[in-house]
Design a protein around this nucleic acid. Structure first.
Length: 420
RNA sequence: GUGGCUGUGGUGAAGUGGUUAACACGGCGGAUUGUGGCUCCGUUACGCGUGGGUUCGACUCCCACCAGCCACCCCA
């Protein structure tokens, strides 16, 4: 118990950290290119923020949140996603005040009480963006392309981009009604979940995985047939822009996002080899959310990307960098007295930016050399009795085994530039 | 939350109801004098996820729990 991380959590070990940093670097680079700025919001928020923001009939809010009372009797929830928080911060700090669109991105831990599986954790990491303050379809296209660019930049292949529109408060109610009428006549054929969805959220029936429900849903009316002019032209414009840059996508009418705040554009990027956890990124427009949370009516769009899944996919495709950290110099000493002088030189070399290590146990020279080899030292500085007496050390190049005796003063000039 | 599979040292793993739990990698030590990478030798699990139970005796059988994985579900 004490020696096990809680279920669904995971340590990221030094041997894995390079992969994470590599991915994060790509994200930050692409965000900079697209003009998105980083924002960091609290790990926990008032529970109500998520209930209002995400929707309290959603699965996430109903059964997946880490909610608890703090010592001041406030109901607190570990963020299950970051959009609500970013919107909250946007409103709280009046980031709309400059009249410009706010383009924000985040990277961080999210928490959902799910049953763990590969690619699905209770604490997981998301990268995401939110663009607040514009209802232009070009922002939709840009957001989608940002996700695609990141994944392409990582070198991922075989990704599928699916897009859809889920309507807006003007047209969705009619569609909802239409769906309820359609499924209502066949309600006893639907699975249990869908029967309850019928009244609560009939659009979710469209992406039910139950084969029979799926079959029935095939003949359901399309939202695209009920869209208001605004939603229709918006969607057309988004598609045109994606076409303009030659991105492949598939319009998937069954693509319905699981969070209530979505309007108009919805999209998802999948990497099928990940199995049940193939959704690598997903998002959409949420034009009503800012107002819902108490801010001025403001359009918004964003997406989130699951970093564990991106890492998993990258690993499958062998795209992750190897750990190639080398030690610039390893200091070997023949005895404790000499080590005191050597230690001083170790510190001076480090001050000059070199990666320097030595053997804490001061074992035999052979074992010290082995350690030097293990940390992939480029050079070894051997402080031997005889040389030390002469005020010099041996500098050995580990790559070609060449070695020479140099004076203490020359150590710094000899090792100049090896860290590069 | 539901169903299924799995759980042996740092790692990958073999193993049988009954003396000292293979093997490989890794680690540590060594192979004449102060020097690594190759080779060779030695050494390295008081314990077989945890806790109970069955048994003369269990790592091997049973139960519970915990954890991982797969599917469902959900979503990133």
């Amino acid at each position: 118990m004490l020696t096990n991380a809680p279920r669904g959590t995971k340590d990221i070990l030094p041997s894995e950290i390079n992969a994470w940093r590599y991915v994060e670097d790509v994200l930050r680079k692409v965000c900079a290119e697209f003009g998105f700025k980083e924002i960091r919001t609290p790990i926990f928020e008032h529970t109500e923020l998520f209930q209002r923001g995400i929707g309290d009939t959603t699965d996430v809010v109903e059964k997946e949140m880490y909610t608890f009372l703090d010592r001041g009797e406030r109901s607190i929830t570990l963020r299950p996603e970051n959009t609500a928080s970013v919107v909250r911060a946007f409103v709280e700090h009046k980031l709309y005040a400059d009249g410009q669109i706010a383009k924000l991105f985040y990277i961080g831990s999210m928490f959902r009480y799910d049953r763990p599986q590969a690619g699905r954790y209770r604490e997981f990491h998301q990268f995401g963006i939110e663009a607040l303050g514009s209802d232009s379809p070009s922002v939709d296209a840009e957001s989608i392309l940002l996700a695609i660019t990141v994944l392409q930049r990582l070198g991922l292949k075989d990704l599928q981009l699916k897009i859809n529109t889920v309507g807006c408060p003007n047209c969705r109610p009619q569609y909802r009604k239409l769906l309820q009428d359609f499924f209502g006549t066949k309600s006893q054929e639907l699975c249990e979940d869908c029967q309850s969805r019928l009244t609560r959220n009939p659009m979710r029936i469209l992406d039910c995985k139950n084969p029979h429900c799926h079959e029935i849903a095939m003949n359901a009316p399309f939202l695209t047939d009920c869209l208001c002019d605004d939603c229709r032209s918006h969607f057309e414009e988004v598609k045109k822009l994606l076409d303009a840059v030659g991105v492949h996508y598939e319009v998937d009418h069954s693509l319905v996002r699981g969070l209530d705040y979505y309007t108009k554009t919805a999209f998802e990027v999948q990497y099928p080899p990940l199995g049940a956890q193939s959704a690598v990124a997903g998002g959409g427009r949420y034009d009503g959310l800012v107002e819902e949370i108490g801010g001025p009516a403001t359009s918004g769009i964003g997406f989130a990307m699951g970093l564990e899944r991106v890492l998993l996919a990258s690993e499958k495709q062998n795209l992750l960098p190897q750990n190639t950290e080398m030690t610039d110099a390893f200091v070997v000493c023949t005895n404790k007295e000499i080590f005191q002088s050597a230690f001083n030189i170790v510190m001076k070399l480090r001050d000059r930016g070199l990666k320097v290590e030595f053997d804490y146990t001061l074992g035999s020279m052979k074992s010290q050399m082995k350690k030097a080899n293990k940390v992939q030292a480029k050079y070894v500085l051997i402080f031997g009795d005889d040389e030390f007496a002469r005020g010099s050390v041996i500098l050995k190049n580990m790559a070609n085994s060449e070695q020479k005796e140099i004076t203490f003063e020359n150590i710094f000039s000899e090792l100049q530039g090896v860290e590069k």
